[in-house]
Amino acid sequence: MGDQKVRRNEDRITGVSPVREMPPPDDESTVSLLRELVNHLRKNRTQLREEWARRITEAKLLGAMTSEEMFAEATSVYDNYVEVLETGAVEALQAYARDLSERIIPRGVETDEVVGIVLLLRDVLARSLFAKYQTDFQLLNRILDAYEPAANRIANTVAVGFVQERERIIRQQQEAIRELSTPVLQVRERLLILPIIGVIDSQRARQLTEQLLRGIRTNRAKVVVIDITGVAAMDATVANHLVQTVEASRLLGATVIVTGLSPEIAQTLVTIGVDLGKMNTVGDLQGGIEEAERLLGYKVTPFNEVSQQPI
């Protein structure tokens, strides 16, 4: 279990995307073309940025943001964009895309919106190039040759950054759910409860078993109540695993009571042919705890009944 944690951390590091280097501009002419392009974009910054913001609003993208916020973000994206075109280094843009994603994902911005705005910017800039060089088609062609690969690379970087941020969040949440979802609780001396909620896959089943067997050992439990009311369905593999857990617990000297089986799970267990003699099942958690208390020799009596008895 220890090395699982290590692996998790590595995931997080490698998850931050292998940076693919932009190939250096092929020759002198491309470099000078890109420089000319960048100068053009710098000069018309205000106008192009406004045009872009207008197009974003028109396309009803980024609806979750106010127009000021959108304009501020658009400005940073624009400046980053131009910088990447100039230097060819995508690292700064990647970091910015990650940062942007971190900020906007919680606000419900979708992947298609992010990709959409970057593609819009690409189009807006391409149009302005058309407008500028429409008299000289050869130059326009060469400018576009230099511009298009760089622009596509940028769009790609931003989209990948966004998706990776999403995936990182999903991984983090899965982790959190996994850690939260398997408590082994002691309710009385030698009586443990293991409430299971949600979907069980084989990995989670294995983790549950490990935790339960360890819990039996450390709490010196004699009876364990596994409550699966919160589990809607399980496949045959996981059902088998549950049966194995029951048997392994018995080898440690603990009796397992399974409670809250849904009709579907009951059917699965019958279909895979579980030996019901080995499985101790009770309808609900309350019944399970009562049965466990009986096995442990406890008797629960209401307080007033006790006090009425002659001493």
């Binding site: 078993t209 490990e210 067997l213 360890r214 039996i216 050992r217 194995q244 857990t245 048997e247 392994a248 617990s249 080898l251 440690l252 000297g253």
Partner: peptide
């Protein structure tokens, strides 16, 4: 039989 380790128990099962 006493003292079966948790890992051993699950491997056996």
């Amino acid at each position: 039989i006493v003292g079966i380790q948790p890992e051993v128990a699950f491997a056996m099962v």
